[in-house]
Amino acid sequence: MSGYSGGYDAIVVGLGGMGSAAAYRLAERGLSVLGLDRFGPAHDRGSSHGGSRITRQAYFEDPAYVPLLQRAAELWDQASVESGRSLVDWTGGVMVGRPDGPTVAGSLASAREWGLEHELLEAPAIRSRFPQLRPSDTDVALVERRAGVVNPEESVRAHLSLARRAGARLHHGETVLDWTSTGHGVRVRTDHGVYSADKLVLAPGAWATEVIADLGLPLQVERYVQFWFAPDDPAAFAGHPVWIWEGENDRQAYGFGAGEDGTVKVAFFRGGAPCDPHSVDRTVYPGEVDEIATFVGRHVPGAVRNFVRAKTCLYTCTPDHHFVIAPHPGHDDVVLACGFSGHGFKFVPVVGEIVSDLVADGVTRHPIGLFDPTRPALVRTPEHVA
């Protein structure tokens, strides 16, 4: 790149999961990179926290994600080695529900289309293989080996460290006020100053509706809660595969094996309340604890013996729950990475690679057609505009 006069090759706005990986991959290419984030490193105000995130490949959301997940798996292992941090634990995964439900049927479709190693178990075999689980007689489970746990805070710290090592300048505690595409690059104004660059990456998480307001994407920020319980037998959950359970009315909960402190983390996947990221209610109420304990208690009863703690988390959702990763349709010098809809963290390293491709080369070899910001699901109808 030529380098905008007095500026950077690229500015990355947002240094959570996606932005930290993008900053690293851009700096690794030899570009001069400035990263900006309104909060501190690996903060808990957005979506990249909570100690654990599920990664999996038999993807019930859409088989089109699978090649990205396979590349992400390679990059998770690579980033662990390069950073010297333990970022992923391949525990395996168990997806439980009725045979024709979206969780099992969708996972099975992806596994078969891409030839992923998997097993399909009926209820007696589930109980025998995973005695902590209590399926009904009509439940089945898809079991996959290449699933596990990613640590979000460690991931962000690792990618920030690798970005700095590659020469990126990272400014935390600095809020972006606005940005402008000048036709010869971009200018970004913050509460600390004004910066210029050839290219701009917008990975602002829950603040996307503000930072990308010009595009009018129909994004909705939703409040979710992550819960930690002390199980009745921590040893029985040590190293347990991650699980997703589809219950009544297709509602999904998910959970992990016991962490280093002996607690088990569980949460609901959908059904969060719309919120404002600036004023989200971060109080967790007894009724919310009772709801998750009741649901999980029916299916994984030993996991939720005693409530320990909880923490809120934000999803930034598109109407179809697919991501937005693409050049800005109105500005060739701006790349978007947002709308990850609560299932994006497992893609962090490959999103960083895709973004760096789009910034440096204008194209990527990865399949990202599903993430086009001009797709019909993201076109606002007159009632949305009003």
Rank of each mutant, 00 (worst) to 15 (best):
M18D: 03
D77F: 07
R187D: 09
A197D: 06
Y315F: 10
R129N: 12
Q220I: 13
R157Q: 06
P41Q: 04
R157F: 01
C338I: 11
D357I: 02
T91W: 00
T138N: 14
T190M: 08
L200M: 03
K265N: 02
S196L: 08
V359T: 02
G369I: 09
E117R: 15
V143L: 07
A73W: 00
P234R: 01
P373D: 05
S341L: 02
D44H: 12
H384F: 14
L162W: 00
L31K: 04
S181T: 12
D77E: 13
V88G: 01
V13R: 05
A230G: 13
L177R: 12
L26H: 01
F227T: 02
F340I: 04
Y65H: 02
D276C: 04
R375Q: 06
Q220D: 14
A377E: 10
D232T: 09
S356D: 06
R298T: 12
L358T: 01
T180Q: 13
S2C: 15
A158N: 00
A73G: 07
V176D: 02
D77H: 13
A21L: 07
R251S: 14
P319E: 05
K311I: 14
V225L: 04
S86T: 00
H43Y: 06
G7S: 07
E174Y: 12
G17Y: 05
A163E: 05
P286G: 10
E246G: 05
R38C: 09
V81S: 11
R112E: 14
R145G: 08
A73M: 01
G30D: 08
S356P: 06
A105K: 12
D232M: 09
G148M: 04
V211T: 08
D233I: 08
D44R: 13
K346Y: 05
G84C: 01
G339R: 04
E210K: 13
D37C: 03
P329K: 10
A203F: 00
W114R: 07
D77P: 09
P373E: 04
G216I: 04
G35D: 01
A235K: 13
S52V: 04
L170I: 10
A310E: 02
L116K: 03
S341G: 03
E117D: 15
A206C: 07
Y24A: 00
R134C: 13
A58G: 06
L215E: 07
